[in-house]
């Protein structure tokens, strides 16, 4: 059977003005237990690639510039 791509809102939001991933920072990607964050090749900024979040907050807590914020996944709100 062919695959579809279904849209989903993701809980982790990155403020691209504050994110310094293009300078080589990968802290949020490194600490995420579920390994769902990546650096975008297009923008050079961190983003949530996979909607598999435990809303646990190391990404937000450890971000050196306060660029990351964790929201409660929509289904739980």
């Amino acid at each position: 059977m062919p695959l579809a791509s279904s849209p989903t809102t993701v809980p982790v939001v990155v403020d691209e003005a504050k994110c310094i991933a293009e300078k080589g920072c990968t802290v949020c990607v490194d600490v995420c237990p579920l390994d769902v964050l990546r650096i975008s090749e297009e923008t050079g900024k961190a983003y949530m690639k996979y909607d598999e979040c435990w809303y646990c907050m190391p990404c937000e807590t450890d971000c050196p510039t306060g660029a990351v914020s964790v929201n409660i996944p929509y289904l739980l709100r």
């Binding site: 237990p33 598999e52 435990w54 996944p73 739980l76």
Partner: peptide
């Protein structure tokens, strides 16, 4: 991933 335990 909305589990009680860390979902990992």
């Amino acid at each position: 991933y909305g589990t009680y335990e860390n979902a990992t």
